[in-house]
Design a protein around this nucleic acid. Structure first.
Length: 780
DNA sequence: GCGAGCAGCGTACCT
DNA sequence: ACAGGTACGCTGCTCGCG
């Protein structure tokens, strides 16, 4: 007796656990019973502790466990009901230290059973279920949906404005539900809004997972507000809404809600993707390289009212494309979030709403349990504030040698911080404060880490790194477009995310395993190894022109590539196990620019030309959102021409662009400067141009909120720059105002290009008066 | 009264 | 709700000059 299937979701009601299992015969609910527990540390006063909880707890167990690195006697106290846990803890928490009292019941259940969501198990038993993992792939069927709303006042108001269209898309079906007649084969006409939403609920019942794009904050709360329910869950269970400072969250019981916008935000947070805006259109294009039709959503209600046949059909098509784009993006990101769920033990719903620090913490908690270690407490707010106040010394950045360089090799340490942690057993509880260990690693800043046992964090990292190597090897057996390859690729990505976030986690104020000393030791070792690399490279006869955190840029001079590889081998042979220096690449040329203020070259700003002719631009205006397109484009072109030695062409490019700006031949969009509004408008002490532009949006009746992107153009006229900054995005309020050529030439174009040209001896005046000066001179 | 110089604010980027 | 290192534009103040 038993069933085999994929653990899709889990929830609990009191002490009853509900497992949603996808079997070959659809999703089934399997129930179990589970009693929550926590730990108390008696510190010798066991009898007192026992007396206090006797009769109040369901079960009391004395056991040995590792507490903050030391073996101790702990008391495991189980209770009948989740709600009773805090009551029992209250009896003793003043006198005894208590631990692990704030774990979610379902997560604790899964930890104890050794299971995670999104894996396939054979499940046996009635009361105390037994799980056996099965190596099998069960495919997930997902449905994307999206709503269009009536919006005569700009933003739709769910109290008045109906949902006018519902679109959906999956692998096998797609369509639009609406309550006005539209002539298109993918549109289904229904009586009213209610019918459309109810039909969506019916359709959802055929799927395992729901995709939305910002469904957490828009689609689902909107529908809920309008009719008080949305029954997308298993057997039409109502969706659950939760509000917090980070917005709304919409959980669909038994049918994981994957809000693709949350997935994309996570990827942005870990630096996996970076784009200007995270609208569905922009993400669809940036991630999948596909375009979709765009309609003016502000005018959407007019289209609905006018009922013109072609416009209505276009609106329906737009709506459908939103669902298709959401579906395709969902399919693209799902494997990664499934792997993150498997790695962390979070449900898929939680995995797509997780932060990098939570990934690390979840993995540590699971591993701690395996090692019979009691998990440290979460810090209270006071402690968090104390931790935030104390900052530590970070990485080393070498000031670059300014100018144009030839034949550069870039060397970097593979996963520097994780490898330092593993190689030196860096862990909050191997840290030897009293200096009593015989065998230890000593960091350059004088912290000691005992060698007698492997710390939890280095052990976890070693595991992540070795598993990743194994997965990468396994990947080679499969074709790139196979399902197996995609899964393995997602798995190695999830392992990489967890490993890379570990150092940051140790220095994260809210971390359970926070350790300033560990973080300080890691960065100290980091600085030590990069400086060592610089020294050794110089000793070997290379000129080191730049270094940042884990890399060094070395000039070959009269040496050959072979010499670089020999140096690499020699250096690696002296490195501890698990640490490795890699060749990032060879570059034909590179340029480092002189700093605006003071002397010397700017750090973190340079361009490299690869051997295949590709240009890599780092830190310069070209990669910044808060510079106009016109300045960025010309900077890119000038960089390429300078790196290719085409100096005259570079000068000509600048002169020609100045000419075009003067003549007004540049499209308006290229003047836009995008800057994020980071705080509430009232909080600003210094009113910059983007704040001025935002204020103008507000005055014109548009919504302003922190986090929004403001695109503005500096126009002609008097006063300072802010006085002349008018919004262009999200709404163009320029009216008849035109961009100020002086500003765009002197404050945008020239600063972006003169610093590059200055490195090859060209001064600003050469651009003004050289060449075609007859036509240009008078403008300066 | 005015311009130069500069500190502080604010944002975005690199690793 | 990852942190530290960095550059740099804009605003608004101070200071010296006349």
């Amino acid at each position: 007796m038993g069933i085999t299937g994929l653990l899709l979701d889990i929830e609990h009601d009191g002490n009853e656990i509900k497992l949603y299992v996808k079997t070959s015969d659809g999703v089934k609910i399997v129930k179990d019973r589970y009693f929550p527990y926590f730990y108390a540390i008696p510190n010798g006063k066991e009898n007192e502790l026992m007396k206090k909880v006797k009769g109040k707890a369901k079960d009391i167990e004395k056991m040995e466990a590792v507490v903050d690195g030391d073996k101790k006697t702990v008391i495991k106290i189980a209770v009948e009901e989740p709600s009773k846990l805090s009551k029992v803890r209250d009896l003793i928490k003043e006198e005894f230290e208590t631990r692990e009292y704030d774990f979610s019941l379902t997560e604790r259940y899964m930890i104890d059973k050794g299971i995670t969501p999104m894996r396939v198990y054979e499940i046996k038993g009635e009361k105390d279920l037994k799980f056996k993992e099965i190596d099998k792939i069960i495919k997930i069927d997902a449905l994307a949906f999206d709503i269009e709303t009536y919006n005569p006042k700009g933003m739709p108001n769910p109290k008045e404005d109906p949902v006018i269209m519902v679109s959906y898309a999956s692998k096998k079906e797609k369509g639009v539900l609406t309550w006005k007649k539209i002539n298109a084969d993918f549109v289904e006409y229904l009586e009213n809004e209610e019918e459309c939403l109810s039909k969506l609920e019916d359709i959802s019942q055929r799927y395992d997972v729901i995709y939305t794009y910002n469904g957490d904050n828009f689609d689902i709360p909107y529908i809920k507000e309008r009719r008080g329910k949305l029954r997308l869950g298993f057997e039409k269970e109502n969706v659950k809404l939760r509000k917090s400072k980070q917005g709304h969250f919409a959980e669909i019981p038994g049918r994981p809600h994957v809000d693709v916008f949350r997935c994309v935000s996570f990827l942005e947070g870990i630096g996996a993707i970076r784009i200007l805006r995270y609208t569905l259109e922009d993400v669809y294009k940036a991630v999948l390289g596909k375009e979709k039709i765009d309609v003016n959503t502000r005018e959407l209600w007019k289209t609905w009212d006018n009922e013109k046949e072609d416009q209505m059909a276009e609106l329906a098509m737009y709506s459908l494309q939103d669902s298709i784009a959401t579906y395709e993006l969902g399919e693209y990101v799902l494997p990664l979030f499934i792997e993150l769920a498997k790695l962390t033990g979070k449900t898929l719903y939680h995995a797509v709403r997780i932060s990098a620090s939570h990934v690390v913490e979840s993995v540590l908690i699971r591993e701690a349990h395996k090692r019979k270690e009691i998990v440290p407490k979460k810090p209270n707010e006071e402690e968090v504030m104390r931790r935030i106040r104390q900052t530590i010394k970070g990485a080393y950045v070498k000031e670059p040698v300014p100018g144009l360089h030839e034949n550069i090799a870039v060397l970097d340490f593979r996963s520097l911080y994780p490898s330092i942690i593993i190689a030196h057993n860096v862990d909050p509880f191997t840290l030897d404060k009293e200096k009593k260990c015989k065998d230890y690693y000593e960091s350059p800043n004088g912290y000691r880490f005992c060698k007698d046992r492997i710390g939890l964090i280095p052990a976890v990292l070693k595991n992540l790194v070795t598993m990743r190597a194994k997965v990468k090897k396994e990947m080679k057996k499969y074709k790139r477009d196979s399902l197996e390859y995609k899964i393995l690729n997602a798995r190695q990505q999830s392992l990489k995310i967890a490993a890379n976030a570990t150092y940051g986690y140790l220095n994260f104020a809210r971390a359970r395993w926070y350790s300033k000393e560990c973080a300080e030791a890691i960065t100290a070792w980091g600085r030590y190894y990069v400086r060592k690399l610089i020294d050794e490279a110089e000793k070997a006869g290379f000129e080191v022109i730049y270094a940042d955190t884990d890399s060094a840029f070395i000039k070959l001079g009269n040496k050959k590539k072979k010499d670089t590889l020999d140096f690499l081998d020699k250096f690696n042979s002296k490195l501890p196990e698990f640490m490795e220096l890699e060749l990032e690449g060879f570059y034909k040329r590179g340029i480092f620019v002189t700093r605006k203020m003071g002397r010397g070259a700017a750090k973190k700003r340079y361009a490299l030309l690869s051997e295949t002719g590709e240009m890599k631009i780092t830190g310069l205006e070209f990669v910044r959102t808060d510079w106009s397109e016109i300045a960025k484009e010309v900077q890119r072109d000038v960089l390429r021409l300078v790196l290719e030695g085409k100096v005259e062409e570079a000068k000509e490019k600048v002169r020609k662009t100045i000419d075009m700006i003067r003549k007004g031949e540049i499209p308006l969009e290229k003047y836009v400067i995008y800057t994020q509004l980071k705080q509430n408008i009232a909080q600003y002490e210094a009113i910059g141009p983007h704040v001025r532009a935002a204020k103008r949006l507000l005055e014109a009746g548009h919504a302003i909120f922190p986090g929004m992107l403001i695109g503005y153009i500096v126009t002609k006229g008097g006063g300072n720059i802010g006085d002349r900054s008018y919004p262009f995005y999200p709404v163009n309020l320029l009216g008849s105002r035109r961009p100020d050529p002086d500003y765009y030439i002197n404050n945008q174009l020239l600063p972006a290009v003169t610093k590059i040209l200055a490195e090859i001896g060209i001064k600003k005046d050469d651009l003004k008066f050289g060449g075609k000066q007859s036509k240009l001179g008078k403008w300066f």
